[in-house]
Design a protein around this nucleic acid. Structure first.
Lengths: 313, 313
DNA sequence: CTTTCGGCTGAGCAAATACTCATCAATCAG
DNA sequence: CTGATTGATGAGTATTTGCTCAGCCGAAAG
């Protein structure tokens, strides 16, 4: 749609006049020859389309301090803490922006890298913050299958979302998230189309993942990947969190059997040889985050002030 | 002042809650435990301190097109065009932000680079847009002296401004802008403290400069570097623009004699071996910009829509 | 100890902005 | 061709923001 592009152009122009040039919407309306309301709509469109990117260039002392202490205490190689909004229950607010900045930083590199991506709401929100740009030198590979139990494309598989805005070479994983049995998983993983992707995932320079909790609203349950019975069984076995479907207990040890036999996801890249950065915040995820750190599943964390504080106590 | 730092912390937090979390100032006030007015003041402080950085992630088609045509027509290796605010007479609005982004892009590189900086209001405005960060691997060298005719530090010498926010190795040029004679210049340039700096400037990987005009408000005149008589003489000799004090005619050829014999600035780095990017916009500067491009003094340009349009016609 | 001064604060108000709703135009299926 | 649907528009209005001004507090000077 040319009209759509033009509209976004106009929106960008209006947003530019508003945020950069500091015009009022009245002035913008006059300059663009539209009504004041339309100008307001253009600005708000630009905002809602994510064209407007605000960053605060000030390391808030308390956040820096929390990040430093987390890094020290848990030997993390990367940690970023964003301010909390005390009133908000969102599990993405703030961390998604910070994650987007970090993801962009990696993708802006000139030498080719391999980036692996997990799945989940938090990560999806982060990807949606990315500005469009081109980096054909990089490879972005999904750690998890993109097929829902009902056969449709998994909504929270983020590689596709990313491909919409960032032009890199994408490697989705054309698999279900869980195989029906360990045997089937082996078979699936041996497919000629899958194997290279799995190998690529193993060689990732950097990995971004979300962490799923095992409360009553566990994402694996809500999205229909596991049944209530399986959830109960996992909880009984001590499950506190999950990364791309790999379930682990409070010590960060993968739980044997149950669902981990059937997860079709690639194994998590080894944090010893690459950066594995989790993006997670919120009370619910706390046990999972703590466990993932303790078990050395991850070596990087992007979280918020409140969660950081809780992790230290 | 700890209070000052705390205040900026609070300002950053308020700005974060406002711009990123989307709170109203009332909500922020409640959360930070201050009055609404104070919250408003914190937000506006954050804005005026430059903590808040807005960027519009949308290439406005017409600007992209102008940039492309400029690059083609004049064989520029870099060109960026920002939207114009039709009502504003500013010669920095927009281009300073765009220049800051480009400068930051260079400084974020991991491998060490040498960046040379010119002088002037436009460049200073750009430097002021830079967020604070550290890049000790780079060297930033001034092309011009930093001593005003009256002996004070030249206000528009930007290396110091930059050193305030960006931690790189800085090389100011402890010289006047103009020597009193050609002989004195030779002598000054042969000083042991100056020579390495000059050599560094000659090896710059990237150079950012402003362009001065020769109208009645010529910056060289306004800042007291040259007299009205010298200005008249230069104009009579065909001067249309000036970069770090080097005056050139409408073909971009340096004007022999008069002031060019005495400019203590380093010679402009050769655009064949490095990027020499001019930041300039506005009707007044048009002849100077055109000449600098024509004469091959620069190979990169950051300007605004209106100026770009005029350059193409 | 008092005075002065600079900066901070809150109240009130004007301006700017965002939202809702009814209307209108264009597109598309039948 | 007609009716339905979608999306844009302008008016009116509520909310939010920014500005000015008078008062206040504490630090520094006398």
């Amino acid at each position: 749609m040319a009209s759509n592009g033009n509209r976004l152009d106009e929106a960008a122009r209006a947003a530019w006049l508003y945020y950069v040039a500091g015009n009022t919407q009245d002035q913008i309306a006059a300059k663009l020859g539209v009504s004041r309301q339309s100008a307001q709509r253009l600005v708000s469109l630009a905002v809602s389309e994510g064209l407007v990117n605000v960053r605060i260039d000030h390391p808030i002392a308390s956040c820096l301090d929390l990040a430093r202490r987390l890094k020290e205490r848990y030997s993390l190689s990367f940690c970023e803490v964003v301010p909390s909004d005390p009133a908000s229950e969102s599990t993405t607010l703030g961390v998604s922006q910070a994650a987007a900045v970090e993801i962009e930083r990696w993708l802006r590199k000139e030498e080719p890298i391999i980036m692996a991506l997990g799945t989940g709401r938090t990560l999806k929100a982060a990807i949606e913050q990315l500005p469009p740009f081109e980096c054909p030198q990089h490879k972005v590979v999904s750690l998890t299958g993109n097929i829902s139990p009902d056969g449709s494309a998994a909504y929270y598989n983020v590689v596709f979302t990313m491909a919409d805005t960032v032009k890199s070479r994408s490697f989705p994983m054309p698999l279900p998230v869980f195989a029906s049995s360990q045997t089937e998983r082996t078979m699936l993983h041996n497919q000629a189309m899958i194997r290279p992707t799995l190998e690529l995932a193993g060689k990732a320079d950097v990995t971004f993942v979300g962490i799923g909790d095992f409360g009553p609203q566990a994402p694996l349950l809500v999205d229909g990947f596991i049944s209530k019975e399986e959830l109960d069984e996992l909880q009984a076995a001590g499950a506190v969190g999950e990364i791309v479907g790999w379930t682990f207990d409070s010590e960060g040890r993968l739980i044997e059997g149950i669902t981990n036999d059937r997860v079709a996801s690639a194994p998590l890249p080894d944090p010893k040889t690459s950066s594995v950065i989790a993006i997670a915040m919120g009370q619910k995820k706390l046990p999972g985050i703590r466990a993932a750190i303790k078990g050395g599943l991850i070596n990087g964390l992007i979280t918020d002030e409140r969660t950081a504080d809780a992790l230290l106590n």
